[in-house]
């Protein structure tokens, strides 16, 4: 019973950390139709910035998160202008190659600057201690991740479904030409959603660092995991991404607890079964090219 509870809580927190990182990828893929394999690289950059801020500059955890999000977006925006904008309407293969190339470059440069060692992010004492929930105690950090995940999910849903920006974004996705004709500045909308996705990935990289440790190969090691989560959930769907993260997180954590020597075997088996059963993902949008 105790094991079952701790597996459930761990799986839930891990799934939420995955969700915060992956939802940005799901948005760029579903709404802007870019297969951005470099998404994990941006999460990693966020983690590095936060680690540098908390450990070397001695700033607080909150500052670390904010700095990581701003810094990563500042790095990513020129890349959007110079590289991504040229592949928005190219084939999937071109997008995959270009973004793998960016990932490789980021790994090489990161290692050159920071070295191959693992970086940690200092947690504030409130989050490092276990919190008593009455029936059992749980690491404060886990609760923080879970709450952040829920806030991100709710905030995104509100942004996309209930605000003017969301309406413009959905219009640009449905029909770029018509949206432009109506006076919507689609380049700005795209750049803003790209920046939002990157900021979320940096946030996820920082809060998820306890589950996915920050090191140069982070970008490549978890690239597959992130990609899998998005395609299982169905690109562009918040609810689908949430379901996929919780499902795959649960399978992954349970597998690690109960059958550690099988590694990721069950994770990938589940992926193949789900994708075969739902080729468009659990809740994929039906693509409607204009």
């Amino acid at each position: 019973m105790q094991t079952a509870l701790s597996i459930t809580l761990d799986a839930f927190a891990y799934g939420m950390a995955l969700f915060i990182i992956c939802i940005g990828l799901s948005l760029t893929m579903g709404l802007m139709r870019v297969v951005n394999l470099a998404h994990g690289a941006f999460a990693m950059i966020g983690g590095y910035i936060a680690s540098y801020a908390t450990r070397n500059l001695g700033l607080g955890y909150g500052f670390g998160i904010v700095l990581a999000m701003i810094g990563t977006v500042l790095i990513a925006l020129p890349l959007e202008r110079l590289l991504y904008r040229r592949i928005y309407d190219r084939s999937e293969l071109s997008q995959v190659l270009m973004t793998i190339g960016i990932t490789f470059c980021v790994i090489g440069i990161t290692n050159y600057i920071f070295g191959p060692t693992l970086k940690t992010i200092t947690l504030p004492p409130e989050l490092a201690q276990p919190i008593d929930l009455g029936f059992r105690s749980i690491a404060g950090h886990r609760i923080f991740v879970i709450v952040s995940g829920l806030v991100v999910a709710g905030g995104l849903w509100f942004l996309i479904e209930r605000t003017g920006f969301g309406i413009h974004l959905r219009a640009a996705v449905e029909n770029v030409g018509m949206a432009r004709a109506l006076g919507i500045r689609t380049e700005i909308i795209y750049a803003a959603s790209f920046a939002l996705a990157i900021a979320l990935s940096a946030f996820g990289g920082v809060v998820g660092a306890e589950f996915l440790p920050i090191e140069p190969y982070y970008a490549l090691r978890y690239m597959v995991t992130f990609l899998v989560v998005v395609s299982v959930g169905g690109a562009g769907s918040i609810l689908g991404a949430l379901a996929a993260c919780l499902l795959l997180g649960a399978i992954d954590v349970t597998g690690r607890y109960l059958m550690p020597d099988f590694g990721n075997f069950f994770f990938y088996l589940a992926v193949i079964l789900v994708v075969c059963a739902f080729p468009r993902g659990l809740m994929g949008r039906v693509k409607s090219h204009g």
Binding site: M29, V35, E92, V96, V224, L227, V228, V230, S231, V232, A235, V271, I272, V275, C276, P279, R280, G281
Partner: peptide, 8 residues
């Protein structure tokens, strides 16, 4: 994309 993910 799902096809690519299946191959991985």
């Amino acid at each position: 994309l799902p096809q690519l993910v299946l191959s991985i």
